[in-house]
């Protein structure tokens, strides 16, 4: 099936990157947000599309909870975002939809959102390899997205699911741009000892084994949660606040390696 209207709408976007993981709760949304903030702080124009229809987290993380439709400007830097979260009547309402309705919503996101000129459109996805993933891959097929960034945590239980996700990309012909190992260790704020809460190194090992680029390893940083979850405490724009977070250095490196892959 051909979807020329998607191509038309996305013609002004340079790179489309999907953020995927077979496992839930490994930090897809927080990595998507950090990639976006990091790219935006380098002066790129970035869009974030959240296609997690049952559990949209992006609005909360960008401090946009409760907004209806949105466009955020941070000085001359530009960061735009679209999520089903903006369309729900209240934050507790559940979205109990089956496949076809999900597909229609995703198509609408790809055809009806006016992004304007963007350097990057980052697409945050729900965990797994199901309706939402097939829909977005199918609709984007003609436009041929640049590829996918895979997020994992280091423990074996997560790696098994992520391996499946990488094989999903191979099957549907989506290039894998690289892998990020998230939640890799936690530095105790009291004694600075690093504990590998979910072990460490598993993601890098998997990237080597599957022959995909390893983009980097990010530790658990409770400051990120504070930063993303307390928009009211922020005096600076979210991009500037993030620049002061330790993790921003790591994501700067990850973005550089991502640029190389593109």
């Amino acid at each position: 099936m051909s979807h020329p209207e998607v191509g038309e709408r996305l013609a002004s976007i340079k790179h489309v990157v999907l953020v995927l993981s077979g496992k839930g709760g490994v930090g897809k949304s927080s990595c998507t947000v950090q990639l976006a903030l990091s790219l935006a702080s380098q002066g790129r124009k970035v869009g974030v599309l959240d296609i997690d229809l049952c559990g949209p987290s992006i609005p909360r993380m960008l401090g946009l909870d409760g907004q209806q439709i949105h466009q955020a400007t941070a000085g001359w830097k530009r960061l735009a975002c679209m999520s089903i979260g903006f369309l729900l009547p209240d934050k507790n309402a559940s979205v109990v939809w089956r496949g076809p309705k999900k597909n229609a919503m995703i198509k609408q996101f790809l055809t009806d959102v006016y992004w304007g000129d963007l350097d990057y459109l980052l697409i945050d996805t729900p965990p797994g390899t199901s309706d939402e993933h097939l829909a977005v891959v199918e609709y984007l097929q003609e436009w041929s997205p640049d590829g996918a960034v895979i997020i994992t945590t280091p423990q074996a239980v997560a790696l098994t699911d992520v391996k499946k996700e990488i094989n999903f990309c191979h099957k549907v012909g989506l290039p894998v741009l690289g892998l990020i190992e998230n939640m890799s260790g936690f530095v105790c704020p009291h004694c600075s000892e690093c504990t590998n809460v979910f072990s460490t190194g598993g993601g890098e090992g998997l990237a080597g084994h599957m022959e995909i680029p390893f983009l980097g390893r990010a530790p658990i940083d409770p400051n990120l949660v504070m930063l993303l979850e307390r928009p009211s405490k922020r005096l600076l724009s979210i991009v500037e606040t993030y620049e002061r977070c330790e993790l921003s250095k790591i994501f700067k490196g990850i973005c550089e390696r991502l640029d190389e892959a593109l």
């Binding site: 496949g99 390899t129 199901s130 499946k164 996700e165 094989n167 999903f168 099957k171």
Partner: peptide, 9 residues
């Protein structure tokens, strides 16, 4: 263990 299950609802 490695094969993805690509199924719709």
């Amino acid at each position: 263990e490695e094969e993805p299950v690509i199924w719709r609802g």
